Amino acid sequence: MSLPSPAATVPQGGHFRHAAMLAVALAFLVLVGLVLPHGDSGESFREWLLAHAWFRPVLFSLWAVVVLEGLLGLFQGANARIVRVRRLVLTALLPPLRMITASSTPCGWLWLPGAGWRPTGEATTEKLEQKLALPMVILTLLVLPVLGAELTGGETLENHPRMALATHFITCLIWVGFTVEFLWMVAAAPDKPAYCLKNWINLIIILLPLFAFLRALNMFRFARMVRAGKLLRAYRLRGLWTRLWKLALLFNLFERLQQRDPAKYRAVLEKKIAGLEKELTSLRTKLDSARQETSPPSSTPT
């Protein structure tokens, strides 16, 4: 059964509207990324940005645009009302989701910049994966100069403010890139939970800075109520989060580089398949033994 054409369900001017809302959602994501603690660098910039008079009004304005556009979509979409309301709630709680969905988006379709409407499924997933493969490898490679800057500039880069700021911007760019890629790929995937499980390392890369940011909020909230030793431990814990984030990036880089070399990647996959087949054979043997032990003894005729 073929999907209906999205042109029949999307109002006129929908392409321009989705492009504009994509820019709004991306701007919101970038502002959030700039205040997240991606490492020991950029602390003074983050504090300045959070304290600046324009930051919160701009962030709130972008959020308000997403919510208002979602409310208008409740009266324009062709889907069931409950579906439109659910999408409105999701985009209101997480404005970056507006890049991939809206209250008026037809079910089973995804709007892509430069490509227009595409049906979700394996074909769109493969095309997105091919287009994003090289840019994401290059983006992930940026973790190497970040690690080099932190090693040469000291753990906190206190004596190198410009290098610290550049390092913070690069790590922010990496985080935004991974978030955008993950959102688009999840939106296009036919089985979204399976995609998340398969690409769990990407999900960790996205979530670790958020956890570190929540930890930092608690740290500043109770800073006057704790002793210096506890505050120091809080800083060390935040540093642990950021180091885990960089390890996840390195692991992801290794996986992506393997995929760029088909021969090596095929060999790795064949090795994994052989291991799984061996494990499956072992499990079947154990299952047969368990069945024999639990099966009732056959009665012999007298």
Results as ranks from 00 to 15, higher is better:
residue 3 L to I: 07
residue 5 S to Y: 01
residue 5 S to I: 00
residue 7 A to F: 04
residue 14 G to Y: 00
residue 19 A to P: 00
residue 23 A to Q: 08
residue 27 A to P: 07
residue 32 V to K: 00
residue 36 L to P: 08
residue 37 P to M: 10
residue 39 G to M: 01
residue 44 S to L: 11
residue 45 F to Q: 08
residue 48 W to K: 11
residue 51 A to K: 09
residue 51 A to R: 09
residue 51 A to I: 00
residue 51 A to E: 12
residue 59 L to Q: 12
residue 65 V to Q: 03
residue 66 V to Y: 08
residue 68 L to R: 02
residue 71 L to V: 15
residue 73 G to C: 02
residue 76 Q to L: 15
residue 80 A to R: 13
residue 84 R to D: 03
residue 85 V to K: 01
residue 94 L to F: 15
residue 97 L to S: 05
residue 102 A to Y: 07
residue 104 S to I: 03
residue 106 P to M: 08
residue 114 G to L: 09
residue 118 R to C: 15
residue 125 T to E: 15
residue 127 K to E: 15
residue 128 L to Q: 07
residue 128 L to M: 09
residue 129 E to Y: 10
residue 136 M to K: 07
residue 136 M to E: 11
residue 136 M to C: 03
residue 139 L to V: 10
residue 142 L to S: 06
residue 143 V to E: 05
residue 147 L to V: 03
residue 148 G to S: 03
residue 151 L to C: 05
residue 160 H to W: 04
residue 180 V to W: 13
residue 186 V to L: 14
residue 191 D to K: 11
residue 192 K to A: 11
residue 196 C to Q: 14
residue 198 K to C: 05
residue 202 N to D: 08
residue 210 L to C: 10
residue 218 N to Q: 10
residue 222 F to Q: 11
residue 227 R to G: 15
residue 229 G to E: 13
residue 230 K to Y: 09
residue 231 L to V: 00
residue 233 R to P: 01
residue 234 A to K: 03
residue 235 Y to L: 06
residue 235 Y to E: 07
residue 237 L to A: 06
residue 237 L to I: 07
residue 238 R to C: 04
residue 239 G to N: 09
residue 240 L to K: 04
residue 240 L to N: 04
residue 240 L to D: 08
residue 245 W to Y: 13
residue 247 L to D: 05
residue 248 A to F: 08
residue 254 F to N: 03
residue 258 Q to M: 13
residue 258 Q to L: 14
residue 258 Q to R: 09
residue 263 A to D: 12
residue 264 K to G: 11
residue 269 L to I: 11
residue 271 K to F: 09
residue 273 I to G: 00
residue 276 L to P: 00
residue 279 E to G: 06
residue 281 T to V: 12
residue 283 L to C: 04
residue 287 L to I: 07
residue 288 D to C: 02
residue 289 S to R: 14
residue 291 R to A: 13
residue 294 T to G: 00
residue 295 S to E: 11
residue 296 P to I: 01
residue 300 T to A: 13
